[in-house]
Design a protein around this nucleic acid. Structure first.
Lengths: 340, 340
DNA sequence: CCCTGGCACTCTGCTTCGGCGAGTGCCAGT
DNA sequence: ACTGGCACTCGCCGAAGCAGAGTGCCAGGG
């Protein structure tokens, strides 16, 4: 059985009211607050159907209806009108983001901005190394058997690692390795580097082979394995709004999940181009986040995506507003990166 | 009036029991659990005095006593015996910290370790730049009017900043500036650099003066102004232990405070050599942390201190244990850094 | 002088119990 | 197909009562 227009309208009203008031909404209150030209009794029948279909439910017999995860899903898919940002919000975004001085700064400002605007927990992934290219590699001798490897990516990210060498190496040799490495790897996509690094080892003279192999293994680690690690988080205090009513009484599991970078990266890192992804309650694979929703999207200069960002909040959240904000911030950040 | 030995013993017993059980402790329970050879009635009299002196109080008339902030203070100052770490803890520390691959890694492992051992929120400051020296400065041309400045400190910290130049500069000139800058600043304490940077500008030839001035200003920012910024945080989920009973019902203010890096740096950054500082409840200047305690200490290779670390928890915490753990972790990290 | 046992008192927390009100489901009527 | 009416169901709230823990004080004993 398909839901007719009015039933959908009723669902929308329920979602909107519940999000606004945080209280189960009854038939009478509904007809008062929204102009749908029917009586409470009619609405009740509609609600009965909606409940049967699994879009709403009653917390207890006889006390208003509350949207289910499926209800929210239907709402965001078919019912929510895009809510344009207020001029104030636009201004806030611009004001917040100008004057950022380096990548760290951009990311930190962004994550705070996002948390503030949405009043939720915000997460911003640093530009993923996998999707960027090498701008420069620097080798700095630290002692005779140790060198510091510094990689600068075109997105502005800088990674460093200490390399332990099996045998002492002269500074001149380091310099030579430095130019060799740069020559081979500069301007290459990080994802493409592994074979090049291997070639680097194969092509080096036998007496320097072991040293180079050592460097190569650290290089690979830095360029590939560790490549998705960094992200920034803000707004955890927002979890406490709604006085523990959201998140079924305990934010413990949520806080735990937020501490696991791996989890967060799963949440905001997997993005298809120019889509905003919304995960509602149960749709999250992570058990700890069963009572939370995540809105995430990718960002990057132009159409390419270099990283993800998003927010996490209670399933009972203002989806249209949040989605609009997340998108807008992502676009601004992308523009900012493009100017670089 | 001074408190005799038994009264102090009673206070200790109250603190220990309250910390363990989280419930107000009465006279009867006290004499049962601790072998102080007197009757409940006597203990009651002592408690009356302790209350008058402000070391304990009753949450409500007629329901056990609870230590006040002053009570905890007296406890940590005069009553707590040092609690040696269990072998298991020692092993945990070592296991956790070996295999750290660079400074970031060390800091992250440390903060997680600390959170896990103390079961509180842990904070670790990155080695303060102000207390370290320059190991190497790198200038990487990004475009003709932009160069990336990378500074490597002897503690392993790496900072980068983008420098916008007023006019295009040839790569060769950049190289020359690079060696000039290194020659002057390498191995200098960061705190000593400002005059040297100024000299660098003054000594440069007129045609390169403005470029150098530009670089210098960013240098100063990087070396001095932004120098204390970085820190790592872990274990926020531990705030939810004790089911919202600690922190007078709302962890909102605490979470808010934890988001302000400035606040955290105040808390753990101000350390005198080889002291462990304990701030209890009201002793915190920050209003939001009036119901929290902070245990912090400095760490560094040998006796010098390069940064601070510590934990934050409810005033009702196991002070002896926490202090011991914080100290031990600080020492291990110091040793780790010294090997570098 | 300090400690002890006893006693009366004061609370809080928990449980029980109605009454109230919101909200529903169903039904008959238009 | 919608509406108004009606009976019913429950959760919430305040009052009342009960039990238990803990206290303060006092008089007696080492």
């Amino acid at each position: 059985m398909s839901l007719d227009d009015r039933k959908l309208e009723v669902l929308r009203a329920i979602v909107e009211d519940y999000v606004a008031t945080q209280e189960p909404v009854g038939s009478k209150a509904l007809v008062e607050r929204h102009q749908l030209g029917v009586s409470p009794a009619t609405v009740r029948n509609d609600m009965a159907v909606l409940e049967e279909e699994g879009y709403i439910r009653q917390p207890h017999t006889s006390a208003g209806r509350v949207p289910t995860d499926a209800g929210y899903r239907l709402f965001v898919d078919r019912l929510s009108r895009v809510k344009p940002l207020s001029p104030a919000e636009r201004r806030a975004i611009e004001r917040f983001l100008v004057g950022a001085v380096d990548l760290d700064d951009v990311v930190h400002r962004t994550v705070r901005l996002l948390a503030q605007l949405t009043r939720q927990v915000a997460v911003v992934q640093y530009p993923s190394l996998a999707r960027s290219s090498v701008r420069h590699l620097e080798l700095v001798p630290v002692s005779t058997t140790r060198i510091m490897l510094v990689m600068i990516a075109d997105t502005g990210r800088v990674e460093q690692r200490l390399v332990e060498l099996p045998a002492p190496v002269a500074p001149d040799d380091v310099m030579e390795m430095r130019s060799k490495v740069n020559e081979k790897l500069c301007n290459q996509k990080l994802a493409d580097t592994p074979p090049l690094v291997q070639a680097l080892v194969d092509d080096s003279p036998p007496d320097r082979r072991t040293t180079m192999a050592c460097l190569a293994s650290v290089l690979l680690e830095t360029l590939v394995e560790r490549s998705e690690e960094r992200l920034a988080l803000a707004g955890t205090a927002n979890l406490t709004r709604g006085g523990m009513l959201d998140f079924q009484g305990s934010l413990r599991p949520v806080l735990e999940a937020l501490e696991e970078e791996v989890i967060l990266l799963k949440l905001i890192g997997e993005v298809e181009p120019s889509t905003t992804r919304v995960r509602i309650g149960d749709e999250n694979e992570i058990d700890n986040l069963r009572s939370a929703s995540v809105v995430s999207t990718g960002y990057g200069p132009g159409v390419t995506i270099v990283g993800g960002l998003g927010v996490l909040g209670p399933t009972r959240m203002d989806y249209p507003g949040t989605i609009a904000t997340v998108r807008a911030v992502a676009r601004y950040v992308g523009d900012l990166l493009a100017q670089n």
